[in-house]
Write a protein that binds this DNA or RNA. Structure first.
Length: 214
DNA sequence: GACCAGGCACATC
DNA sequence: GATGTGCATGGT
């Protein structure tokens, strides 16, 4: 069955314009940001990233050398800082060991296999893995998050028990595998989710309202 | 003063 | 295999 996702994309782009997520950052900075962003407001992530920069820790080798306590202190504004310090270190150690800290080398691994490898790293779940792939490396791996889930279930495009991977596949089989498209679409879903999906009444003004089931 | 935010691992049933 | 819980800051 043909999904209306392309129409959703067009309507959202018209309404919100390009979101320009993660512009002009290094791939490594995006990877770090993806971990810091777990269950955290984006404004807090920005503070933590700025703090890492100020501490000279926004570099794979430096970050790997830093002790967890120092790291935790530096990323404090991101919340869950002890957990995230451990996850960051674990990720960076893997990144250095596996690719010498080089995003170019990482980008040469076939997408499905690279995703599998990422998921084996402690602290990297599906959404973080896909964020790293899509926003960090420019690979066409669709990112699903709470907003994506909310929009799709509310519109009857997926039942509430749909898993992460199923929802991801729903997008990936309906769209051409183009990273810029996946990038923009996911950011637009967050935009509409934030503004309109918080409560039922707000659906009245939503740019997707004409696609809502009766 | 709850409740939420661009999750995840781990415990427990 | 499905739920439940801890992590923790800063904004609404």
């Amino acid at each position: 069955m043909k999904t209306p996702l392309r129409k959703y994309y067009a309507a959202l782009l018209r309404r919100f314009g390009p979101q320009k997520w993660w512009p002009g950052e290094t791939p490594f900075e995006v990877m770090v940001g993806a971990i810091l962003a777990q269950n955290t407001a984006w404004t807090n992530v920005e503070k933590a990233v700025a703090s890492l920069k100020a501490h000279g820790l926004l570099d794979p080798a430096r970050l790997a050398e830093a002790d967890e306590g120092t790291l935790a202190l530096a990323i404090r504004p991101a919340g869950c800082f002890n957990v995230k310090a451990r996850r960051l270190k674990g990720y960076v150690e893997w990144f250095l060991r596996r690719f010498g800290g080089d995003p170019e080398r990482m980008g040469k691994v076939p997408l499905p296999r690279l995703r599998e490898e990422l998921l084996e790293v402690k602290g990297i779940g599906p959404e973080t893995a896909d964020s790293i792939l899509l926003y960090g490396l420019g690979r066409p791996s669709f990112v699903v998050d709470a907003y994506t889930w909310r929009v799709l279930t509310r519109h009857g495009l997926a039942p509430e028990e749909t898993t992460y991977d199923e929802m991801k596949e729903l997008f990936e089989r309906s769209l051409p595998p183009e990273a810029p498209l996946f990038n923009e679409f996911h950011a637009l879903l967050v935009a509409v989710g934030k503004e309109f999906c918080r409560s039922r009444p707000r659906c009245e003004a939503c740019p997707l309202r004409r696609y809502l089931p009766p």
